[in-house]
Design a protein around this nucleic acid. Structure first.
Lengths: 242, 242
DNA sequence: TAGTGGTCTAGACCACGCC
DNA sequence: GCGTGGTCTAGACCACTAA
């Protein structure tokens, strides 16, 4: 008969979005622990099991990290376990390489049509463009061109990038308070242009993986658009299908 | 003090592996429903909540599919919702294309060094090799070369392949009782060789995505090794990162 | 209306990390 | 020993599906 709840949302999802709000508001910082399940249950006046289910989902989405006996922590790109979480390039011998990010350029620009559409900002709005090289041990393997909304990344310079000894996303997190939650990648095969070929030390025309990534923060807000060119002669992009 | 349980396994995981066993033994067929949570709880003499947690995990792994009000079902590649579950190629305009699989060749061979290693069979053991073309609407987009253990795929012929009007994995499931659970892909950029270029109707040397996939059935047993060459001029390989 | 999965609760106990 | 997350239970009630 009567449609009771056209937008029925279970209690644990409401709790989840409350925790999300707190997270977004910066109530707990990346790497820090959030209150215990008991405390949260009291705070929201629900049972511990309901809080638990909310946290379960958020842990599955890599927003939180549970550690038995210790507590629940806000996920962080500064955590060694998650440092290159989004980089799927692996050496052919499946070793874990020493990665090194080498910033090449960093300049201001105005958002063109495509950048404004993808980053959901006004055309002509300020953006930052970063070019950088990624090396595995001493081998150059990836050239990235990264587009960032200038609004958010105010104060980003080549010097800042060069003085940072860790992953880009951990810099974004620490310096700009931006937490990268998830990303979408579009992968294609392309031929290396001259300048990329030089940087990667291969012949012009060498087939490369073009990896176009849009990265999102809380609320599915896009905050990074990057295009990486991956050299796959001694490495491969690894993907697991379920 | 005493190390109580070096290999502690919670009850719900034991239940999970019992359900897995039943699944593997073919007690319930793909697409069919398994017993209700209550029935399983009685059968295994545990609470409904414990069964629920076991099923939760299996649903997350795409082994089972829950449908509220109806029951829990064995996942199937014949289900339209999961038909091309492992194919990540998408048209640039993000439309959902009409896919068509065109078998080109199918022959017997003996496993070489690499095939035997990957499929975990004896070198020299019989294998089947299938070559096929995949079209989106009328556009050729993928050429696959597929290696299958002959032991399992006894009776596979080009005629069988040609008479099947659906996805390969649904054929494997229906005809050979083989259920593909998960897969690992290694992606590279390569240049099109002459014969592939002809089939895909592009110039020789065109950059293509090389997608090497190993597919596993229950118990992490590898049962398929394939290499696909994807044309990415009007399509892209989509990947979501979390 | 009956049966299924989905939610929510309350309480007991276990495993783990740390002091 | 204490606090944390992790497991297990039992029971009540809700939402969805199909007969």
């Amino acid at each position: 008969m009567a449609q009771e709840s056209p937008t029925f949302s279970p209690l644990y999802r409401q709790i989840k979005s409350l925790i999300l709000q707190a997270l977004e508001a910066g109530e707990w910082r990346p790497g820090q622990s959030i209150p215990s399940e008991q405390e949260l249950a009291m705070r929201f006046s629900v049972s511990q099991g309901t809080v638990r289910k909310a946290i379960d989902e958020m842990a599955a989405e890599n927003l939180l990290v549970r550690r038995q006996g210790k507590g629940t922590f806000v996920a962080s790109h500064s955590d060694p376990r998650a440092m290159f979480r989004f980089l799927r390039l692996v050496p052919d011998d499946d070793s874990i390489p020493q990665r090194e990010s080498i910033p090449l350029e960093c300049w201001r620009a105005k958002a063109g049509h495509e950048a404004s559409r993808i980053l959901a900002i006004e055309p002509g709005a300020p953006i930052m463009i970063v070019r950088r090289l990624l090396r595995f041990a001493t081998t150059p393997v990836v050239v990235d061109e990264i587009y960032l909304p200038g609004e958010v990344f105010n104060g980003l310079t080549l010097e800042v990038l060069q003085s940072w000894r860790s992953s880009l996303y951990s810099l974004f997190e620490s310096r700009f308070g931006l937490r990268m939650i998830r990303a979408d990648e579009k992968i294609r095969a392309v031929a290396a242009d001259k300048s990329t070929a030089e940087i990667l030390d291969v012949a012009e025309g060498t087939p490369l993986l073009s990896v176009e990534r849009v990265t999102y923060t809380y609320g599915d807000r896009p905050v990074e658009w990057r295009r990486g060119l991956y050299l796959t002669e001694a490495h491969y992009y690894h993907n697991e299908l379920n």
